[in-house]
Amino acid sequence: MTADRQAWLALTAEDAVDPDLPICDPHHHFWDRPSSRYILEDLLSDTGSGHNITETVFVECSSEYREDGPEALKPVGETVFVQGIADESATGNHGSTEVAAGIVGSADFTLGDAVTEVLEAHLEASPNRFRGIRHRAAWDPNINAGSPGAPPEGILLDPKFREGYARLGPMNLSFEGWVYHPQIPEVTDLARAFPNITIILNHIGGPLAIGPYEGRRDEVLETWKQSTAALATCPNVVVKVGGLGMTFTGYDWHERDQPIGSEELAEAMRPYYLYCIEKFGPDRCMFESNFPVDKVSYSYNVMWNAFKRISEGFSDSEKASLFRDTAKRAYRLGISG
């Protein structure tokens, strides 16, 4: 995040709503790249902006892979990298937030049963924090087909993928479902085929509003609702409520002269987020930041204020689930191994 972007975000300043409410942020990234950097100090700057962030969960982002060795094992370098950050956070020299209390890595399930070696290597690198795998599946013929790093069409339905995916169950690991909204039925099929594996749907299933979906928000919303309702019938699925700050959702927030405030942001998010909570229930929903990706559109403080405005009508126990308890349970935080 550049200094100019930070200065832009600072143009919209708000006091934190309900600042003492405990929050587990179940989805953020770390990377240190030539053109962009988001590491411990950057996250702590955000988590320290007014809300009570008690724990966080790191989710893979192709960061700090091993430069040599077997190709399949290169993603383990990311887990080693994040475990080091977690160890630094645990020294107590950086405040009370337990950073990367859970770690989600990457593995290629199309290896089939051979992916077991990769999963074991992740667990060896982080025996007390490693919790699951995200094998990115987001694909759309008009959005990213043929792009570098894009997954093949229908990866979640591929028999070889499922052979590898099946290894998660015996190892007590979860799966991060990162798809675009037309693919949600594929997640439902996967969930029903493997009811013993927890799926954590990322970013409410990625509703698209660019390319051929531009100008069709109401139509997409209805399609997304139908698919989301079907997915919610699978008891082994929980959902991360967030991600609308990404530009493929079609909002112009990142282009404004002044960043959006939490009241307007909450109003835009409500149709999606309240529907998720209605269908899944608070005990299977968790608000997420998706930082620094969503930081292109709004600040950390404004985002959590928006989430709190959306949840104003919920009971204290329901808020506890949405902001912390669902995440802690899904990622088994506070449980060794």
Score class of each variant (00 low, 15 high):
29 H>N: 06
29 H>I: 03
29 H>C: 05
30 F>S: 02
31 W>I: 03
32 D>C: 03
35 S>T: 06
37 R>W: 04
38 Y>M: 08
38 Y>L: 06
39 I>H: 09
39 I>A: 09
44 L>V: 06
46 D>V: 01
48 G>Q: 03
48 G>E: 02
49 S>G: 07
49 S>C: 07
49 S>K: 02
49 S>M: 05
50 G>S: 07
53 I>M: 13
54 T>I: 05
55 E>K: 12
56 T>Q: 01
58 F>K: 10
60 E>I: 08
62 S>T: 10
63 S>F: 13
65 Y>F: 15
65 Y>T: 07
66 R>E: 15
66 R>T: 06
67 E>R: 12
68 D>E: 15
71 E>C: 11
73 L>W: 14
73 L>M: 10
75 P>V: 12
75 P>Q: 14
77 G>F: 15
78 E>C: 10
78 E>A: 14
78 E>Q: 14
78 E>P: 07
80 V>P: 02
81 F>M: 15
82 V>L: 00
82 V>H: 06
84 G>P: 13
84 G>F: 02
85 I>A: 08
86 A>H: 13
86 A>F: 06
87 D>C: 08
88 E>L: 13
88 E>C: 07
89 S>F: 01
91 T>I: 08
93 N>Q: 13
94 H>T: 03
96 S>P: 07
97 T>G: 08
101 A>P: 00
101 A>S: 14
103 I>D: 02
103 I>W: 00
104 V>D: 03
105 G>S: 12
105 G>D: 09
106 S>C: 13
107 A>M: 05
107 A>C: 05
107 A>Q: 03
108 D>K: 03
110 T>G: 02
110 T>C: 10
110 T>W: 11
112 G>V: 06
113 D>N: 14
114 A>C: 01
114 A>K: 15
116 T>F: 00
116 T>V: 15
117 E>Y: 00
118 V>P: 09
119 L>A: 12
121 A>I: 06
121 A>L: 01
122 H>N: 13
122 H>W: 05
123 L>I: 04
123 L>Y: 06
124 E>P: 02
125 A>I: 04
125 A>H: 01
130 F>W: 03
130 F>V: 00
131 R>P: 01
131 R>L: 03
131 R>S: 07
132 G>L: 12
133 I>P: 05
133 I>A: 07
134 R>D: 11
136 R>M: 12
137 A>W: 04
138 A>F: 10
138 A>W: 01
139 W>T: 07
139 W>A: 05
140 D>N: 11
140 D>S: 06
141 P>C: 11
142 N>R: 01
143 I>Y: 09
143 I>M: 10
145 A>M: 05
148 P>M: 11
148 P>S: 08
150 A>H: 14
150 A>W: 09
150 A>I: 08
151 P>V: 00
152 P>Q: 06
152 P>D: 05
153 E>V: 08
156 L>M: 14
156 L>K: 05
157 L>T: 14
158 D>G: 12
161 F>M: 02
162 R>I: 14
162 R>V: 14
163 E>D: 12
164 G>R: 01
164 G>F: 04
